[in-house]
């Protein structure tokens, strides 16, 4: 589904990704772990099409297409979803209206009929129930005045409504208490299927107790320095990241 080859990216001439190779197939869950500043969020944002990052080398193929040539909205319409680490506030725009507009834009692309307000509300309510989200959240402006936990749950809610093919979660667990982590994990697990792939970017192993990954990769100083199965995450939890330094320096 996603093929990343020798991807290099920089911001303000400062190279952050220094040659990433990664292959994700449909049905798989991959986790990318790494210390602060290793380039995890950059990778997530580059895949989503953030223009602040300049891709200087490499190629990314998504469902057989050149992903890097697609503008962000086209990537979204083709099924790529990024759960933001810092969800953005849009004052005056109701969450309900925002998510419905997004869904209908994507449905249009897929040749499906747009959902009217009533049908959409029914769908949103079902997903909100699953995530234990207070229904009043939908009537409020997008992320405005939301608590940190509400913002993250709102991302997962959007993900469940939009049903992406490739979901990228950028540190969705950070700043959440254990109950909230479990709710987020339930949401992600509900989305798991043979046609979808999920890329979880996280600093901590904790989330991976609830979302069991097929593959775990360690990102260190702009490179994937180690890959393994779910046990690698446990190993990292135990040893921390410092032991990787020697490997990375080589």
């Amino acid at each position: 589904m996603l093929e990343i080859k020798n991807l290099r990216a920089s911001v303000d001439n400062n190279e952050i990704l220094k040659g990433i190779d990664l292959s994700i197939r449909a049905g798989e869950v991959h986790a990318i772990m790494g210390p602060n500043g290793s380039g995890k969020s950059t990778l997530a944002q580059v895949l989503a099409g953030r223009e602040a990052f300049a891709v200087t080398a490499g190629a990314v193929t998504y469902q057989g297409r050149d992903l890097l040539a697609m503008p962000p909205e086209e990537r979204a319409r083709e099924g790529i979803f990024l759960a933001f680490q810092y969800p953005v506030e849009i004052p005056g725009v109701s969450n309900l209206y925002f998510v419905r507009t997004a869904l209908n834009t994507i449905r249009k692309q897929q040749g499906l009929e747009e959902l009217d307000a009533m049908d959409f509300l029914a769908l949103a309510k079902e997903k909100m129930k699953l995530l234990g989200i207070d229904e009043t959240l939908m009537g409020r402006p997008v992320n405005e005045g939301f608590s940190g936990g509400e913002k993250k749950r709102n991302e997962i809610l959007q993900m469940l409504v939009l049903e992406p093919k490739l979901a990228i979660l950028d540190e969705t667990d950070s700043g959440l208490d254990i109950d909230a982590v479990r709710i987020v994990a339930d949401g992600v697990n509900a989305l798991r299927s043979a046609e979808r792939a999920i890329l979880v970017v996280t600093h901590y192993q904790r989330l991976l107790n609830y979302i069991i990954p097929d593959h775990v990769h360690v990102l260190y100083n702009g490179r994937l320095v180690k890959s393994g199965d779910k046990n690698l995450a446990l190993e990292l939890e135990e040893k921390g990241y410092s032991w990787l330094e020697q490997g990375a320096a080589a």
């Binding site: 099409g49 933001f84 969800p87 849009i90 725009v93 998510v99 402006p141 997008v142």
Partner: peptide, 21 residues
């Protein structure tokens, strides 16, 4: 970018933000 990542075109994103304002 947040709006575009959700599938909205550039125009629709700005229009939505301005209307919210």
């Amino acid at each position: 970018f947040y709006c575009r990542q959700r599938g909205l075109s550039n125009e629709d994103a700005v229009s939505m933000i301005v209307n919210g304002f």
